[in-house]
């Protein structure tokens, strides 16, 4: 069996027509990749436009140091709107971040109205002004590694994020970031 097909094909149980299921899965997949490009481009408002009014965002990590499932950032859509609005007022490391996202699984609900996905991501940081730009700018570093656990509402062929759990593998985060991941 083709592993790629098995990993990404939506479950065909229930009453959903296979073609509709594929269409829903495609919409979900497109939303994840579009979100990646918009986050990379720092088009924060356009990224939020991909999200439902009740969207909830988390950055989490399991700590084997303290044996605790940690939440590094939690916010509703309203919280994120405020966070984004204030970004220009902060002193920030402006080194661009780019994400390499791969959608692993898409599970569309039987009624075709919701979906859950698991994607892997790697975030690279392309140094600009974080340290000594004369020496360091132009260097790319691995910044974050983890998985996105996303949920969606699907309506009229469009998939809207209802939640994103950004789960990090690395916990040495050095200066961190002001930006959603």
């Amino acid at each position: 069996m083709d592993i790629q097909t098995e990993m990404t094909a939506p479950p065909l149980s229930g009453g959903l027509d296979p073609a509709q299921a594929r269409e829903a899965a495609d919409a979900v997949r497109n939303a994840i990749y579009r979100a990646t490009i918009l986050l990379d481009s720092q088009k924060w408002d356009e990224w939020l436009a991909l999200c439902d009014e009740n969207f909830v965002y988390d950055i989490k990590a399991w700590s084997p140091e303290i044996n605790y499932d940690m939440t590094y950032l939690h916010g509703s859509r309203k919280d994120l709107e405020a966070l984004i609005r204030l970004l220009p007022k902060h002193n920030t490391d402006h080194s661009p971040l780019t994400r390499h996202t791969t959608v692993y699984t898409v599970d569309v609900a039987d009624d075709g109205a919701t979906a859950k996905t698991v994607s892997a991501f790697i975030v690279f940081q392309h140094l600009l002004d974080g340290t000594n730009s004369h020496i360091d700018s132009g260097e790319s570093r691995l910044f974050l590694v983890g998985k996105y656990y996303d949920t969606f509402r699907i309506e009229n062929g469009r998939a809207l994020f209802t939640s994103r759990e950004t789960r990090l593998e690395n916990r040495r985060l050095d200066k961190g970031s002001h930006w959603p991941i």
């Binding site: 590094y72 902060h90 920030t92 974080g130 340290t131 200066k175 961190g176």
Partner: peptide, 28 residues
């Protein structure tokens, strides 16, 4: 607990508002 976590991390977390700036400052 969730409230404490949110309060702590909104300012002091690795993706919070102030800690990132403090660390940029001392790295500078």
């Amino acid at each position: 607990r969730q409230t404490r976590i949110n309060h702590h991390n909104s300012i002091w977390g690795p993706f919070g508002r102030n800690l990132h700036e403090d660390l940029i400052g001392v790295q500078g």
